[in-house]
């Protein structure tokens, strides 16, 4: 009998099937874990993307909002920039005014000294004696004496006055850098027809509201020249109802003119007068102040508020 042939047994075959099943089971389990992980990864990525989408959508809304508010923010910034510049100019002008006041005091002192040391001194003394001793008793003198004394006093007064006027009327010269000042104005015409002229002058609003406590100086003179331009333009165009209304706007002097009933050419005449007058004001030149008029967009001066109303006007 030969050697027995090795034959695969059923048990082995089935055992092999079992091993295969076990392998398959293990592999599928591993694959399932991998797929689960992949799904989780994707879900996490989707969640992140959703968050990014949400953030970008919000950002887009914000950008759209910013774009639509750009015009109003431009006006806000323009208003702030304009008044910031004018307030700077007002500060500089205030300092220059103080310099001019110092020169005025010096001139006054020099004048008093001059009066004591010249031929005018005798005239001044005569004038003083008349005021103290003669004038109170003038009525008691006979008419003929009275007229002689009065005529003599008039001559003395006239000569003194000419001398005093000559000195007092000379501009107060300052040695300093030229100071550029801008007088800003605009025309409010919400319906297309001019309704209001607004002028803002880089001087403290106390120039008007506290005039009684102040003395003349560069700020008063500059403001007075603007008022002169308003009334000269009114006169030139027959605008008899022109009224310069003064008030404060951000502590600067603002002047408004109601244009109801104003001739169409009034604003142009004002611009012309303002340029000509500011360009020929000796008291400003002597103070080394170079003032010009500058027209600006009304919304920079009176920016519309959120509810559509404008900021309060000077009154």
């Amino acid at each position: 009998m030969g050697a027995a042939t090795s034959v695969r047994t059923v048990s082995d075959a089935l055992a092999e099937v079992e091993r295969w099943r076990a392998d398959q089971e293990a592999r599928q389990a591993a694959e399932l874990v991998e797929v689960e992980q992949e799904i989780k990864n994707l879900e996490s990525a989707i969640s992140n993307l959703k968050q990014q989408l949400k953030a970008l959508t919000k950002f887009r809304t914000e950008l759209q909002g910013k774009a639509s508010s750009l015009p109003s923010r431009r006006l806000e910034r323009g208003h702030a920039a304009l008044f910031g510049a004018l307030q700077d100019q007002a500060s500089q002008l205030g300092r220059r005014e103080a310099m001019v006041a110092g020169i005025a005091r010096q001139r006054e002192e020099a004048f008093e000294k001059e009066l004591k040391g010249t031929s005018l001194a005798a005239m001044v003394e005569e004038f003083r004696q008349f005021k103290v001793a003669v004038e109170p008793n003038l009525q008691s003198l006979p008419e003929s004496y009275r007229s002689v004394v009065s005529e003599h006093h008039l001559r003395i007064s006239q000569r003194l006055r000419e001398h005093v006027e000559k000195i007092a009327s000379a501009p107060l010269e300052v040695e300093a850098d030229v100071l550029s000042i801008e007088v800003v104005y605009c025309v409010d015409a919400p319906e297309g027809v001019p309704e209001l002229l607004v002028v803002v002058i880089p001087v403290t609003d106390r120039v008007h509201s506290g005039w009684y406590e102040r003395i003349d100086g560069l700020q008063t003179w500059l403001s007075a020249r603007v008022v002169q331009a308003i009334y000269q333009a009114a006169r030139a165009t027959g605008f008899t109802q022109a009224q310069a209304m003064c008030g404060g706007h951000m502590e600067l002097l603002a002047i408004e003119v109601d244009l109801l009933g104003a001739p169409a050419e009034f604003v142009g005449a004002f611009e012309e007068q303002l340029g000509a007058i500011l360009g020929a004001s000796p008291e400003l030149f002597a103070g080394q102040v170079f003032a010009t008029g500058r027209r600006v967009d009304v919304d920079y001066v009176l920016p519309p508020e959120e509810d559509g109303a404008e900021v309060p006007h000077a009154g």
Binding site: E165, S169, W211, W221, A224, Q228, Y231, A244, E283
Partner: peptide, 21 residues
């Protein structure tokens, strides 16, 4: 007030060419 003085100076055609004296 001083601005009313200016107004009257304009009406009087008497605004000083020199300083306001």
């Amino acid at each position: 007030d001083p601005f009313e003085v200016v107004r009257l100076l304009v009406v009087a055609d008497a605004v000083p060419k020199g300083p306001f004296a």
